[in-house]
Amino acid sequence: MSIPSPQNNPLIGIWKLISATAIHADGTVTPGVYGTCPVGYITYTSDGHIMVMFSRSNRPPLSQEVKSPLSSEMQSLPVEELAQAFTTFNAYAGTYTLSGNTVTHQIEIASIPNRIGTTLVRTFTLNENQVKLLTPPVLSDGVEKVFELVWERI
C-alpha cells in the first residue's frame, strides 16, 4: 500500500462530517450515533498525513471556565463532567496509505490512548463531493456493527 500521486489521490483535502451511522449485523440502522448534527473534520494531505476530530454537536459546556486542559481548573471539575466531555469527542492523527478503495490510518496520537500505534482500516466510496468511510464490523455494546461516516469536501 502506498500514497498515490496527488493527481490520483481522491482523498486529499479537508472534509466536514455530515453524518455518523451504525449499521447492525441484522441490518438495523441507528442514525445519529454522534447526535443529529455531528461536528467534525478529516484532513488528508498529499504527503500521507491525516488528522481527524469529531464530536457531538450538543455537548454541554463545562461548569466553570477552563483556560487550558493542563490547568488546575480542569483538574477540579467533577469526574462525571470530564467523562462526558471525553466520551463525546474523538480525535487522532498520523499517516495513511491507500490500496484501491481501502484507506489505512496509522495512528500516532489519539484522544483514546489505546489507539496509539494501531491501524484503523476503512473502505471508502466517493460520490461527487462526498466520501463515505466504513469501518470493518466491530463489537460495540455487545452487538456487531459497522460504522458509516459521511464527509463532505470543503
Score class of each variant (00 low, 15 high):
T125Y: 12
E65K: 02
T125A: 15
S140R: 03
M74D: 08
E73L: 10
N114S: 05
T28P: 07
V103F: 12
L98N: 11
N101P: 14
S19F: 05
D47P: 10
R122Y: 08
N127F: 10
I42V: 09
P113V: 02
A83I: 03
V66Q: 04
T118H: 12
G48N: 03
T118R: 14
L133K: 13
K132D: 15
A83C: 09
I23F: 09
P38T: 06
H49I: 10
Y96L: 08
V131R: 06
T30N: 13
E144P: 07
P69H: 00
W151A: 05
V146Y: 02
Q84L: 15
V39Q: 03
T119A: 15
E65A: 06
P78F: 00
V146T: 08
V131C: 15
F86R: 01
P136G: 07
Q64S: 15
R115W: 04
M53G: 02
V33E: 02
G100F: 12
E128D: 10
E152P: 13
Y44C: 05
E152G: 14
W151P: 09
H24K: 13
P113Y: 00
N127I: 12
G27H: 01
V79M: 11
T97Q: 06
A91T: 01
R115A: 00
T123K: 14
S76R: 11
V66S: 03
E108Q: 10
N127V: 12
I50C: 14
L98S: 13
N129S: 14
L139R: 09
T119D: 15
L70F: 14
S111K: 00
D47V: 07
T43Q: 14
V146H: 04
Y34I: 02
G32N: 15
T118P: 03
Y34P: 02
V146C: 05
